[in-house]
Write a protein that binds this DNA or RNA. Structure first.
Lengths: 185, 185
DNA sequence: GTCTATAATAGGATAGAC
DNA sequence: GTCTATCCTATTATAGAC
């Protein structure tokens, strides 16, 4: 037990839901500080470049989550269907059953969009390619694999939007079940 | 020519892109006023309850657009496929080829979500039911019709998110083409 | 390392002149 | 009806004490 204080990773984990609950512009320093349990000045000690840096590091951490929980598992040898279902479970957990927004959505609005666009586009590209590779290994033609991968992505992102707008995550749940049922085709 | 000044409808039309370019919290009075070409004080003359009222009226106008451009056409007698394709064209125009966000997305974030939830949920419900009704008339079972309608909605909403995050509307274009190709099934 | 205090700016909203 | 000027609060950010 070397440290009783919070790790940076833990701090970033606590910042994330603030950025996911509203847009980047909607996330205030007051909320961010409260979420971490520190004063605003203390946050600036850890993130000298302020909100933009917090956003960048939150996005980085989400990218690392995607890599370990999505991309690497998808690439492992083994039954593609099983890999796909594991991804759906990871997605369900990360979005808390459809109750949490995606940073791809909240960080692409307004001025923040310009600031983080490259990172966002890169995340989408890697997710899409990870899925497409899986689908090719499952026997789909390259063309069909690409199309299937994109559809999976759009269904997840669309379900997150609609769930939030309805204030009811059941669409998200139905969508994950449907993707599971459809499989890789 | 009774009036040379702007109609209220025109003003609301000019407010809309500000709310669609960022979240409700991200849309500032300065931007809103600039979009209309008036001072902030003049906007308050027209919208005494401020930003919340502007948001509500923008949402109302979007709801009327949906009714005239989506729901009523979907209900008209005639070839369901043709109705569906007309809807895809209207959607393409309204979202400007994938370059404009949906208010269902931007108004459901943060505090605004609580404020507008009922309206948003109602719009989604009507859109979904309009599509499901069309699918039933096209011969799908009620169960399949409901599922197809939801998938169409999620693909559109997902494509808008991904297009914006990538800074490239081509996903949206591909998605509309794919929905057209798939038809009602 | 965290706090209080404070600066500087932007945001939402109103008063009152024209 | 629109404007300038202004108010109040929130917001981002920093200085300096502990």
């Amino acid at each position: 037990m070397r440290r009783s204080k919070k790790s940076r990773e833990q701090i970033i984990r606590e910042l994330m839901p603030v950025f996911r609950g509203d847009s980047f512009s909607g996330a205030s320093l007051a909320e961010l500080a409260a979420a971490v349990g520190l004063g605003k000045a203390s946050l600036y000690q850890k993130f000298p470049d302020g909100k933009a840096q917090m956003g960048a590091e939150v996005l980085d951490q989400a990218g690392r989550w995607m890599k370990t929980e999505i991309l690497i598992p998808l690439e492992q040898p083994g039954d593609p269907i099983q890999k796909f279902n594991a991804m759906l479970s990871a997605v369900d957990a990360f979005y808390e059953g459809g109750q949490m927004s995606c940073l791809l959505n909240t960080f692409s609005l307004g001025e923040a969009g310009k600031l983080y666009r490259d990172t966002l586009a890169d995340s989408i590209r890697r997710w899409r390619e990870g899925l497409a590779g899986l689908a090719r290994r499952a026997g789909l033609t390259p063309k069909n694999a690409t199309e299937w991968a994109e559809e999976v992505l759009l269904n997840i992102q669309g379900a997150l939007v609609v769930s939030r707008a309805e204030g009811d995550p059941s669409v998200f749940q139905r969508t994950l079940k449907r993707l599971h049922r459809r499989g890789i085709a």
